[in-house]
Amino acid sequence: MTRILVVGSLVMDLAFDVPAVPGPGEVILATAFGRYRGGKGYNQAVAAARMGAEVVMVGAVGDDDFGRAFLTALDAEGVDASRVVVLDGVATAVAVPLVTPDGDVGFVQYQGANRQLDAAVAADLPDCDALLLQGEIQAPVSLAAARAVRSRGGRVVLNPAPVHDISDELATTATVITPNEVEAAALLGRDAADLDGEAAARALVTDQRAAVVTLGARGAAWADGSRSGAVAPPGVEAIDATAAGDSFNAALAIALAEGQGYADALRFATAAGAHATTIRGAEPALPTRADVEALLDAAGSD
């Protein structure tokens, strides 16, 4: 069984469906509301477990109702949560996703316990086939984990979101970096409007690091040195993109750990991301392996 280690965030989402994102001083009436467990780390851990991996989650929650709900849910999903730290006097992280009718989503987030996770958690990490990292915890924690896994010859998949929390040193330590177009532009110091996904992936490659640039409904582009390419996702009716990137990253890590090449791995990952857009809320949308394979089979028969 593929072993996935996730060092990252746990965030309770208080999600609102809105007709538009409010401007300064504007009041918008939501059309729907839901409370969902999320955070990039939690989403990636649960998605990887649902897709058949053996998963260990490292993170932090507060000693509160939200934190206890996370621990219960991780156990129910089959994720090893013994390395999730429970902190007294600190709130579990909370986010407010604003989902517009086209399925796009913006966030306001209070980082809470995620910002209190200490790099000491990387001192005795278990062996893994791939480590998944994001930008919602402090960079020194991610860097310590990446170094520990790289020292054993392991793969480190870094989703640099939010990109402003990603240090150059951490980005250099990744074996695969997976920004979206806006994040790729920030990493390259360019204007996102002028960026071509495949060219951006090639520009982000180093001798030690491959690159994947996610392109939303257009799929993803990849480069690993001398080779590059792009993959379109299966067609779906998207209603909420909240967990699409996390599902993509979990699936990509699994596919690469299983030995798939980048083109095949991206087909698997884009199908996982596409499935996630068809269900409202982060946690409910995270796909199983059967969900992904069914979508790939349907796309192949079209």
Rank of each mutant, 00 (worst) to 15 (best):
residue 45 A to K: 00
residue 26 E to A: 08
residue 21 V to Y: 07
residue 48 A to E: 01
residue 34 G to S: 15
residue 21 V to N: 02
residue 67 G to Q: 01
residue 77 E to G: 09
residue 19 P to C: 08
residue 59 G to S: 09
residue 50 R to E: 04
residue 29 L to R: 14
residue 65 D to L: 15
residue 33 F to M: 13
residue 60 A to M: 08
residue 47 A to C: 04
residue 38 G to A: 08
residue 41 G to F: 00
residue 53 A to G: 10
residue 53 A to R: 05
residue 20 A to I: 00
residue 54 E to I: 06
residue 30 A to N: 12
residue 39 G to Y: 00
residue 38 G to H: 03
residue 56 V to A: 12
residue 69 A to D: 12
residue 28 I to S: 00
residue 66 F to G: 11
residue 32 A to Y: 10
residue 23 G to Q: 12
residue 53 A to Y: 09
residue 44 Q to Y: 01
residue 25 G to S: 05
residue 52 G to I: 09
residue 49 A to S: 12
residue 16 F to I: 00
residue 53 A to F: 04
residue 58 V to S: 04
residue 69 A to F: 07
residue 65 D to T: 14
residue 57 M to F: 11
residue 53 A to L: 06
residue 17 D to C: 04
residue 65 D to I: 14
residue 23 G to E: 11
residue 16 F to Y: 10
residue 43 N to R: 03
residue 48 A to D: 04
residue 36 Y to C: 08
residue 32 A to N: 14
residue 55 V to D: 05
residue 64 D to H: 08
residue 32 A to W: 08
residue 70 F to C: 07
residue 63 D to A: 15
residue 23 G to H: 09
residue 16 F to G: 00
residue 45 A to G: 04
residue 49 A to F: 07
residue 40 K to P: 02
residue 30 A to Q: 11
residue 68 R to F: 10
residue 52 G to W: 10
residue 59 G to M: 06
residue 23 G to W: 07
residue 74 L to Y: 05
residue 69 A to N: 10
residue 40 K to E: 03
residue 58 V to N: 02
residue 60 A to R: 01
residue 72 T to M: 10
residue 36 Y to G: 07
residue 42 Y to M: 00
residue 22 P to V: 01
residue 68 R to C: 09
residue 76 A to Q: 15
residue 28 I to G: 02
residue 54 E to N: 14
residue 37 R to N: 08
residue 26 E to G: 03
residue 45 A to D: 03
residue 70 F to A: 07
residue 69 A to M: 11
residue 50 R to L: 08
residue 76 A to L: 12
residue 34 G to H: 13
residue 22 P to R: 05
residue 65 D to E: 15
residue 63 D to N: 15
residue 54 E to G: 13
residue 77 E to S: 13
residue 35 R to E: 15
residue 63 D to W: 11
residue 57 M to E: 06
residue 28 I to W: 03
residue 47 A to P: 03
residue 39 G to N: 01
residue 20 A to E: 12
residue 34 G to A: 15
residue 48 A to M: 03
residue 74 L to W: 01
residue 24 P to G: 07
residue 33 F to H: 13
residue 30 A to R: 08
residue 40 K to D: 00
residue 53 A to V: 06
residue 63 D to E: 15
residue 53 A to Q: 11
residue 35 R to D: 09
residue 36 Y to L: 10
residue 32 A to P: 06
residue 33 F to Q: 14
residue 34 G to T: 13
residue 28 I to K: 04
residue 44 Q to D: 04
residue 27 V to Q: 12
residue 40 K to T: 02
residue 26 E to Q: 14
residue 47 A to W: 02
residue 31 T to L: 11
residue 25 G to F: 04
residue 71 L to A: 12
residue 55 V to I: 10
residue 52 G to E: 09
residue 71 L to K: 07
residue 56 V to C: 12
residue 68 R to K: 14
residue 71 L to T: 09
residue 50 R to A: 06
residue 61 V to N: 01
residue 21 V to F: 09
residue 74 L to H: 05
residue 76 A to N: 13
residue 18 V to Y: 01
residue 18 V to Q: 04
residue 41 G to M: 03
residue 49 A to D: 06
residue 49 A to W: 03
residue 73 A to C: 11
residue 60 A to G: 09
residue 50 R to D: 02
